[in-house]
Amino acid sequence: MRAVWAIAYGMVKELVRKKDFYVLVIFMFVLLGFLSYQNFFQVKGISRYVRDFGYSLLMFFSFTIAVTFTAKQLPSEIESKTIYPLLAKPLSRHMVIFGKFCGGVMISTISFTIFYAIFTGFYMTGGGKSLVLLGQGFIFGVLFLCMVSALVMFFSNFITMSANVTFIFLLYLTIRGFSDFLRGIILFSKGIVATLYGILYCLLPHLEFFDLRIRITHAWDPLPMWVVFTVVGYTVLYCCMLLSLAGYIFERKRL
């Protein structure tokens, strides 16, 4: 585990060194500050659109950090040949993949936590009260970043960094846009077609499960606990499956 920690810690240092994160934090703070102080016809207490923008921004920024930082790990190490000293250590390739995954999750979670703290500040000043919902939003955000990091690590085995980033963004948009549509098709089809679509539905990563934007923005009730536990279980299972596959493929890969 010490080796995994060392790999992950190296990625965290990279986050601290690079300016991307700081720029995003400042941008988010300034934009939300600007939106909060907007005056619309002297109507006081308008807050939902600030929450909406805030939550969307923090998820998008965290997603971007998770994808870009994780996607460049394996390809850049292989390209610069720094992977060889790493593999020369008493460390299995599975552990390298796991270490990179942990690093991706750590840096995106650190960024997410800071973005979420800023968002929480604006949420509270805007009259938001549901701490349970805020807590669920945080948990789901971290789970979402785990899922994204696992997906990026898996696809790092096959494609270059830029292709990986593009693919994950497209995958995210497709799943967000068509998941309900696919569900509708399954419900209204029969026989072998329904089975095939059902399998496809189960295999796809359900990134839409982690989005609590509408609930937080419009102050809906928190999710039932069984849903939270199911989503946690689903994420853990899906990540384990992806990382095992990624490790297996990486082990058989000629470097």
Binding site: V43, I46, Y49, I214, V227, T230, Y234
Partner: peptide
């Protein structure tokens, strides 16, 4: 299956209209 149930739970399905002072939220 369970994924369908989660997906259904995630969607907000209750029908409401903003009322009284809450209508201000649409102004921006």
């Amino acid at each position: 299956n369970i994924l369908f149930r989660v997906s259904q739970e995630m969607n907000v399905t209750e029908h409401v209209h903003l009322h009284d002072d809450q209508v201000k939220e649409i102004i921006p």
